[in-house]
Amino acid sequence: MTFLRSALVPILAVVLAIASGAIIIELSGLNALEAYKALYDGALADRKGIGRTLEKATPLVMGGLAVAFAFKAGLFNIGGQGQLVIGALFAGAVGYGVTGLPWIIHMPLALFVGGIGGALWGMLAGVLKATRGAHEVITTIMLNFVALNITDWLTSKVWREPGIIVRTPAIESSAEIPRWSQLPTGFALAVAAAFACWYLLERTTFGFEIRSVGLNPEAARYAGISVSRIVILTMFISGMLAALGGAIETQGIVGRYEPGFNAGLGFNGITIALLARTHPLGVIPAALLIGAMEAGGSTMQFKADVDPEITEIIEALMLLFVATPILVRWVLRRRDTSEISVGAHWGDA
C-alpha cells in the first residue's frame, strides 16, 4: 500500500506531463495523437523497438542510480557524464588492447577496469570535498569538462584506430556483452545493479551510515560515523555506477569508444533519479520511460514531423510535476516528510 502511494505521484506526474506535451505539440500546429502513436511505434511496438528502448534505458538506469545513490548521502553528483566517458573509454581500451583471454574473463575485466576508472574519477570529487571542503557540484561539473578533454586526447593520440576517424579500434568479441535475440543483455546488468544498490542502502550497516550522513551529518558524526569516509566512498560508488553505464554501452552496443557518444547523459541521470524520488528500484521504470521516449524520438520526427526535442520538454514537465509539493500533498493528503532534501546540504563542507 505504501508502495502504491509513493508510486502515485510519479505516475500522475507522467500523465500530466504527457498531456501538457500534447498541448504543446497541438499549439505548434501538429497532430499530438499521431506523434504519440509514432513514438509508441518506434519504442515499443515490436521486438526491435523494445530492444532499442532497453538499449537507451541501460545507461539511463546507471546514470540515474549514480545520482540517486549520491543523493542518499546528501551529495549531488552532476559528474555522471565525465565518469561515464572514462568508464566507456577504459572498457573500450581493455576490450581491444587485451587479447587472447576467454570471454568469461575478458568481458568482466573490461567492465571492471571501466568501472574502477570512473569510480576513481568520482572519488576525486569526494576527496576534494572531504579534505578541502570543495563543493561537489562545482568540482564534478569541472571534472566533466576535464574528463571530456582527457578522453578526447587519449582517443586521438594514444588508443586511436589508424585512419581518419577519431575512435578506438573495435573491441575483441571476447569482451562483448552479447545480445539475446535482439534484446541487449546489458539491461539485465543494470537491473542487477539497481537491486544491489537497494540492498546496500537498505539492508547493510554501510547503507545505514550513508543514509545517516544524508539525513543529518552532524548527528552522524556525533554517532561516531566518519563523514569524510562516507563522502569519499559514496562518490566512489556513485562514479562507478555511472562508469559501468558507459562500459556496458561500449561493450554491449557501440563496440568501441567514439568521442561524443551519449552527450547529455549527466542531465538525464538527474531527471531519472528525481523522477524515481531517489529510490534505487524506482530508477528502473523511470529509465525505461525516458529510454522509450528517446528510442521513439526519431520515428516521431519521421512519421509525425515533430522534433524529438519535445521529449526533453516532457521530461522537464515530469520533473516539475514530481517536484511540485502541492501535487504531492494533494495526492497524499499529508506533508511528505520522509524525503531527503537535496538542497539542505548546499553549504555543508
Binding site: E312, I313, A316, L319, A323, I326
Partner: peptide
C-alpha cells in the same frame, strides 16, 4: 510551494534546454 530548491533549479535547466 516550498519545493526543493535544487530540483526547482534543475527543472529550469532542463526546460530551457528542451
Amino acid at each position: 510551494l516550498r519545493g526543493d530548491q535544487i530540483i526547482a533549479g534543475t527543472v529550469l535547466n532542463i526546460a530551457a534546454i528542451g
